[in-house]
Design a protein around this nucleic acid. Structure first.
Lengths: 231, 231
DNA sequence: ACCTGAACACCGTTCAAGT
DNA sequence: ACCTGAACACCGTTCAAGT
C-alpha cells in the first residue's frame, strides 16, 4: 500500500508514476496517422494508466511517431481529451429503445455510468462538456421525451435532466475512487470503509453512517428514484 | 476573444498563460513560513489565476521563498490542494441555524454553492474529498438531521445527501463555465447561449431548449425542490 | 531547524528543416 | 503533405549543502 495521495484522476503520481509506452521500437509509416488511430491509442493509454499517463509524448512513443506529429490532427491536448469524452458520452451500441420511455431513460443512465466506471479518470472531461453540447443531444432527446411523457413541463424536464446528469457523474466519481482504493489495498469487493465521526458531536451522522456506503448499485438506483420521484 | 479551449479549471493555458507572482522582490524572513501563510497565498493565486496558476514555483515566488521550502509544511502539492478544498467545504462564518432544519439545509447548500462560484477552479478538488471525509461532517450532520426530521429513513437520508452534494457541485461547475465564457466575451449578465439542435431530429430537445439555460438561480432552487421532493 | 540551489525527469507547444 | 528534431518555457520533487 502506498502512502501517496491519488488525484481526482486516480493515477499514480510522483516517483512511482505509471508509464505506458510499449511499442517504442516500431515506427508507424507515413500517412497512417489519423484522428481514429490517435484516439484508439489514446484510449488504450487511459485504460492502462489513467488520464495522467496520457501525454503527447507518451502517445507519440506508443505509435512510434514524433509527439509533435499529433498536432496535425488535433489542435492541442484539450481537443484530444474532448474527443475522448465525446466517445464516452455517445457510448457504443446505441441507446436502449424498448418502448417504455422511463425504462429507457434509466437504462441510458446506467449505460453512461458503466462507461464512466470503465474510464473513471475521464469523468472530469465528460463533466466539462456542458449539458447543451452536441455530444449529449441523443441522450438528452430521449431523457426529455421520457420526462415529458411522465407529465412534466418542458422547464421541469430540463431541470431534472441536469440533476440526473450531475448525479450520475458524481456517483461514478465516488465509486471509481472506491474501486481504485480497493485495488490498491488488494481488497477488491470489500465494503467501503465506514465513516466514523465522533458520535457525541455527530449523532445523526453516526446513525446514518452505515448506510452511506451501502452497496453502490443499490444506492445508484435509489438516487435515480429520488430524482425521478418514483419513490 | 481567444480561440483556445478552457480546461475544467477555466484557466488560460498555452501561450497566453496567466501568471501570478507579484512579490518576486521581497524575501520572507526565516521562520515566518507556515501552513496558514502558505494557504493564504495559495488562495490568492487561485483567486487571480485559477488553480492552474498555482504551482509550487509560483507560490514560492509570491512569498519570496524557494519553492522547495513549501515541502516543509505540505508533503506535496496534492496535500496543499486538499487543504484548500477543505476551506471551501467548511466555509466561513458557520452554518445557518434558524431552527427550521429544512430551511437551514437549503441555506447550507446555497452557501456551498456561493463558495464554489467564488473559487470555481477548486470544484474538482472539492468533489475529490469523498462524502465521508471529516471536512464534510458538520454540513452532513445538519443535512442528515434535516432529512430525518422530514420523515426519511437513515438509508434514504444518506442517499439524498449524496445526491444533493453531486447536484450542487455539478451545477456550480456548469454555472462557473457560463460566467467564465461571458467574462471572456464581455457579455457579463447575458443569457446563456441557447442550445440549438436540429428540430427535425431532436423535437423534444428543441422544445425544452429555451428552458435549459433559464436563470441559474431559479434552476438551482428547482433542482433542490426536485431532489428534496417539495415540488 | 529551516531554507537554498542544483539537479532529475518530466511536461505542452512552436517552428524551421527534412523527406 | 506530412513528419522530425531541436528548442522554449515550463512542471513536481529529491537531496546535499548552507545558515
Amino acid at each position: 500500500m502506498s502512502d501517496e495521495q491519488d488525484g481526482l484522476d486516480l493515477d499514480e503520481s510522483g516517483p512511482g508514476r505509471v508509464t505506458v509506452s510499449a511499442a517504442a521500437g516500431r515506427r508507424t509509416p507515413r500517412g497512417t496517422l489519423s484522428r481514429q488511430v490517435l484516439l484508439d491509442s489514446a484510449r488504450e493509454i487511459v485504460d492502462i494508466g489513467g488520464v495522467t499517463a496520457l501525454s503527447m509524448r507518451a502517445l507519440g512513443a506508443r505509435l512510434g511517431v514524433d509527439p509533435t506529429a499529433i498536432y496535425r490532427h488535433f489542435q492541442n491536448k484539450n481537443e484530444l481529451l474532448d474527443a475522448l469524452a465525446d466517445l464516452m458520452i455517445r457510448g457504443e451500441g446505441g441507446l436502449p429503445a424498448t418502448g417504455d420511455p422511463v425504462a429507457d431513460l434509466r437504462e441510458s443512465l446506467r449505460q453512461l455510468r458503466r462507461q464512466l466506471l470503465r474510464y473513471p479518470t475521464l469523468a472530469p472531461s465528460v463533466l466539462r462538456q456542458p449539458p447543451g453540447t452536441g455530444s449529449w443531444w441523443d441522450r438528452m432527446e430521449q431523457a426529455v421525451g421520457a420526462l415529458r411523457a411522465g407529465g412534466r413541463s418542458e422547464a421541469e424536464a430540463a431541470a431534472v435532466w441536469q440533476t440526473l446528469l450531475f448525479f450520475v457523474v458524481g456517483h461514478a466519481l465516488v465509486e471509481a475512487r472506491h474501486l481504485a482504493e480497493n485495488l490498491a489495498t488488494d481488497r477488491v469487493g470489500a465494503p467501503m470503509p465506514t465513516v466514523n465521526p465522533p458520535r457525541s458531536r455527530y449523532p445523526e451522522l453516526a446513525a446514518a453512517a452505515p448506510f452511506l456506503h451501502a452497496d453502490l448499485d443499490d444506492q445508484f438506483e435509489t438516487g435515480l428514484d429520488s430524482i425521478l420521484g418514483s419513490r
